[in-house]
């Protein structure tokens, strides 16, 4: 039975890897080389051909927006900021949240109490309130948007990881490591961290999509990046008022977000399976 399970797993694993990685590489490369792919310009306004439907004119294969800008070019270019914000903010939040969750869960006591009270306070604070305060003090910019997203989201990871650590720290293999005399930081890095990657990866992939959309609401409120720079979230918001007449303005950036999240999910699943030698799916 073990033999057959293993075979099945390695098949699934390669499918997830191939599809997920291909999707992400295509999206990433086209975003990076958007200006080479579309030398005519991503921001070129052509009011004469505004709101061209898709597949109607060869110069606008996916149609054009209310200002006559090419939807395809903007979707491709929009990936730059959206991916940058989505991915870096999640990586930042994971690094901060996982570290604090590990320390709080492992050492318990006063460290844990102080950290978790702080986490609770922040969780109780509405995001918009935090965002307005933050941007009002520091001003809106790409870096500040990323920092804001990190600050608002690390708490989720801290809570999640702390809970996992509390369950793991009394398991016998952690006790066994202590009995051997393994130093605390090695127990944390070598034994605890690898055993809690599953749920963290799942939360990460979900949050990338979330952050791409949050960026657009920040831009909408005038707090995010420069509104003239194309982003998926921004395009989605712009296209909303034309949904009845020109669906393509918002559907294509939405599709781009969906494919990115799908790619990340597949890759995340693959990574989780890779990290778990038993091949059991936990969460």
């Amino acid at each position: 039975m073990a033999e057959s399970m293993k075979k099945k797993r390695s098949f699934d694993l390669s499918m997830e890897l191939i599809v997920g990685a291909t999707l992400l590489i295509v999206i990433l490369l086209s975003a990076l080389f958007a200006h080479q792919l579309f030398p005519d310009g991503v921001d070129k306004i052509d009011l004469l051909s505004r709101l061209t439907p898709p597949f109607a004119k060869p110069e606008h294969p996916l149609g054009s927006d209310p200002l006559g800008r090419d939807v395809l070019a903007r979707v491709v270019a929009g990936g730059r900021i959206s991916l940058l914000i989505g991915v870096t903010s999640v990586i930042g939040a994971v690094t901060l949240g996982v570290t604090i969750g590990l320390i709080a869960g492992f050492y318990r006591g006063i460290t844990d109490m102080l950290m978790m009270r702080f986490v609770d306070i922040q969780l109780a604070l509405p995001f918009i309130l935090l965002a307005i305060t933050f941007i009002a003090i520091l001003g809106g910019s790409l870096i500040n948007t990323i920092i804001l997203l990190i600050v608002s989201q690390w708490v989720q990871y801290a809570r999640l990881v702390r809970g996992q650590v509390l369950a793991l720290r009394d398991r016998e293999f952690i006790l066994a490591a202590r009995a051997i005399g393994v130093k605390d930081w090695r127990i944390i890095v070598q034994h605890l961290l690898p055993n809690l990657t599953g749920p963290v990866i799942v939360l990460m992939t979900l949050n990338v999509a979330n952050n791409i959309l949050l960026e657009s609401s920040l831009t909408f409120l005038g707090m995010g990046v420069d509104p003239t720079i194309p982003t998926w979230g921004g395009m989605l918001a712009e296209g909303r008022s034309y949904l009845q007449t020109a669906w393509w303005v918002s559907v294509f950036p939405g599709l781009a977000i969906m494919l990115t999240v799908l790619g990340l999910n597949l890759l995340g699943d693959w990574m989780r399976d890779q990290l778990d030698p038993t091949g059991k799916t936990s969460l």
Partner: peptide, 25 residues
Amino acid sequence: FQDPYASLDPRKTVGFSIAEPIRTH
């Protein structure tokens, strides 16, 4: 320990687990 499965880290090879006391000390 009583339960050998629970007292080995499921994410590490048994070689790693056996080498751990050697490295630690």
